[in-house]
Simulated scan of single mutants.
Amino acid sequence: MDTSIRIRKGGADDVPAMLAIFDSAVGWLNGKGITAQWGTEPFSSRPKTVELVERVAGEGVPWIAEIGGVPVGTLTLTPHPGEYVAAADEPESYVRFLATDARFHGRGVGAALLAHAVEETRRRGVSLLRVDCFAGSEGRLVAYYEGQGFTRTEAFVVGDWPGQVLERRV
């Protein structure tokens, strides 16, 4: 069986697979006691979240990581952040909704998707790649992005959700 990670361009038809990956990630996070990041309800059971995923996928380019033809991870690259983060004062690519199916954690899926985001950003002639993430849980996710070559910029809070914006020059 082929265990290599293949990344392909996604589209609207991939939203159900993306939601399944997010649902799996929510379960994985909850199993680790992390409920503040993405909540406790599956994405697919929240109509407003489903609409947001559909909208973001339509505004940008979803990318799907597959192993053996099975969708195992996703991210969407958009030309701007969500409404809770100010846009950069230069062209940028923004990583939205990065997630790995829980069954494939530890296989380098997230790192492969982020490396692909760097290459896509560079291919588009853009030199700034940004992402934001949950800054709670002792900053483990922030540290993950730093390990992927990103540098912290501004922190923010939405309601009681602590976030951190990070950037990487490509």
Rank of each mutant, 00 (worst) to 15 (best):
R152S: 11
S4L: 11
V158Q: 12
R107L: 09
V170K: 02
R140S: 09
I34N: 10
R140T: 10
E119F: 07
D14R: 02
R140Q: 12
V26Q: 10
V15S: 04
T49S: 07
T100D: 02
D2K: 14
G27N: 11
A112F: 00
P91R: 10
G68K: 06
Y94G: 01
Q164D: 07
V165M: 08
A115Y: 01
V158C: 04
V70H: 14
S137F: 15
D13C: 01
D13Q: 12
A111Y: 02
G11T: 02
F97W: 01
D13P: 00
W28F: 15
L75P: 06
M1G: 15
R123V: 06
E154C: 12
G147R: 01
V56Q: 12
I64K: 01
L19V: 07
T151D: 09
L29V: 11
G136W: 04
E83A: 15
V53K: 08
A117C: 03
L75G: 03
G82C: 12
G159N: 11
F43P: 08
I64S: 00
L166N: 01
M1K: 14
E83L: 08
S4M: 06
E83R: 14
A25Y: 09
L114V: 02
R140I: 13
R122H: 15
K9P: 07
T74K: 08
T49D: 13
R122Y: 08
S93I: 04
G110W: 01
G68P: 11
V165K: 03
I5D: 03
A112P: 01
P162S: 03
I64V: 09
E66L: 03
R124N: 14
R6L: 14
I21M: 05
G68Q: 12
V142M: 01
G69C: 10
H80D: 13
W38H: 09
W63D: 03
C133L: 09
G82N: 15
A88V: 06
G147P: 06
A20W: 05
G149M: 02
F43G: 07
A102M: 10
T78E: 13
G31T: 12
G82D: 15
M1Y: 09
L114F: 00
D160F: 04
L98W: 00
G136L: 09
A87G: 14
P47C: 07
E119Y: 08
A143Y: 07
A17K: 06
Y145V: 06
E83S: 15
T74N: 15
A155C: 10
A65E: 04
T78C: 15
V157C: 05
S44M: 04
G33P: 10
H116G: 04
A12M: 11
Y144E: 07
Y145I: 03
R122C: 13
G106P: 09
G10R: 01
V50M: 05
V118W: 01
I7P: 04
N30Q: 14
G69M: 04
V170N: 09
E59L: 15
L98E: 00
R122G: 13
Q37W: 13
G39H: 02
P42T: 04
R8H: 05
G82Y: 05
I34L: 00
V165W: 00
S45N: 10
D132I: 01
G68Y: 07
G163E: 02
F97K: 05
K48P: 13
A17Y: 05
R96V: 06
G10L: 02
P42K: 13
L113V: 00
R130Y: 06
V126F: 08
G125H: 11
G108Q: 05
